[in-house]
């Protein structure tokens, strides 16, 4: 017995993946920007102080440190690794910077700090690639070593530049273009360069491919190890610059600088919408994540809310960001 059903012909529907992909991409692309705009609008309407140039300059100065670290974290996460050494690298390179400043001058010292950051990134990356240990564990261990070295080098003391260097050492807090602080300018320029590097170069393509599928990337002739090491070096440079901004602000460096901030950086990357699984994301997302985290702090201050609740709000936000990401992902 054979039953022939008359097939109803019509225009073939677009495949289900196609349609959902389009919708999913839109929401995931711009949802986080909408959240940022919403916070900005809410704060503008509810306070008189938010939209003052003083507050905005202050805000952009504050976002520089987390923004730089979030950029480094984003690059690493896209390439499929974590960098938990960020804050220890920050401290160690700032300390090296101050030591070199003491023996030469501020300019050479700052350059030395950035070179130190890049070298520490090179070492971290080499350890991760060569050991084959999961990057989370390998960088956790490495960060303890770096932090320990920072204690050894400083003898647990606070390092200051020489008295006559002190004023120039604070140069990153000086006002610069458009009344913004030099720190903000450094942040914008460096993050801009890295964003272009990731979005428009063949190196950026390799970063995405390695993070998305390391084996497919390897079989496409990509040196997966070098790509990871490069990602760690970018992260190291970002950490060093963030360290210099903090040191310049404080007028000193010490081994306990910015402890735990590497997790804030990863949180910023994730809030921005970079997939923790690698292969997806963008530098601007890390920056938006950092802006949102900074705005929450700023909002608590301006609104006179009890800042003891700030961490609770931040934590809830991270859960929401990751939860929404997962929900959108499951629908496609």
């Amino acid at each position: 017995m054979t039953v022939e059903a008359a097939p109803t012909t019509g225009t073939p529907a677009p495949s289900k993946g196609e349609v959902e992909q389009r919708k999913g991409v839109r929401v995931r692309d711009y949802g986080i920007l909408a959240a940022l705009v919403a916070i900005v609008v809410a704060l503008s309407l509810s306070t008189d102080t938010f939209l003052t140039s003083g507050n905005l300059v202050n805000l952009l100065d504050q976002v520089a440190v987390v923004g730089l670290l979030a950029t480094g974290a984003t690059v690493c996460i896209i390439s499929g690794v974590f960098d938990l050494t960020a804050s220890a690298t920050l401290a160690l390179s700032a300390i090296i910077g101050v030591l070199v400043v003491q023996h030469t001058n501020v300019f050479v010292g700052f350059v030395a700090a950035v070179v130190a950051g890049a070298l520490l990134g090179l070492i971290t990356g080499t350890i991760v690639v060569r050991s084959g240990v999961n990057s989370f564990i390998a960088t956790l261990a490495t960060s303890i070593i770096y932090r320990g070295l920072a204690v050894v080098v400083t003898g647990a003391a606070i390092l200051y530049p020489l008295t006559e260097q002190a004023e120039q050492f604070g140069m990153l807090t000086w006002p610069s273009l458009f009344g913004l602080t030099s720190a903000t300018i450094v942040f914008v320029v460096v993050v801009g360069i890295i964003a272009v590097l990731i979005a428009a170069t063949t190196f950026g393509r390799r970063i995405y491919a390695v993070g998305g599928n390391a084996e497919a990337a390897r079989l496409s002739g990509i040196r997966v190890g070098s790509v990871h090491v490069s990602a760690y070096m970018i992260s190291g440079i970002c950490s060093a610059l963030a360290g210099l901004i903090l040191a310049s602000r404080a007028g000193s460096a010490q081994s306990s600088m910015a402890t735990g901030i590497e997790l804030t950086a990863i949180a910023a990357a994730v809030i921005g919408g970079t997939s923790i699984l690698g292969g997806e994301g963008a530098v601007w997302r890390g920056v938006v994540g950092a802006l949102i985290l900074t705005l929450i702090g700023n909002g608590f201050n301006l609104l006179g809310w009890d800042t003891t609740y700030q961490q609770v709000v931040t934590g809830v936000l991270i859960l929401l960001a990751v939860g929404i990401d997962r929900w959108l992902r499951r629908r496609r």
Partner: peptide
């Protein structure tokens, strides 16, 4: 597993 980076675009 070895051929494509599934979440990236056809073009990439």
């Amino acid at each position: 597993e070895q051929g494509l980076v599934m979440m990236r675009s056809v073009r990439e």
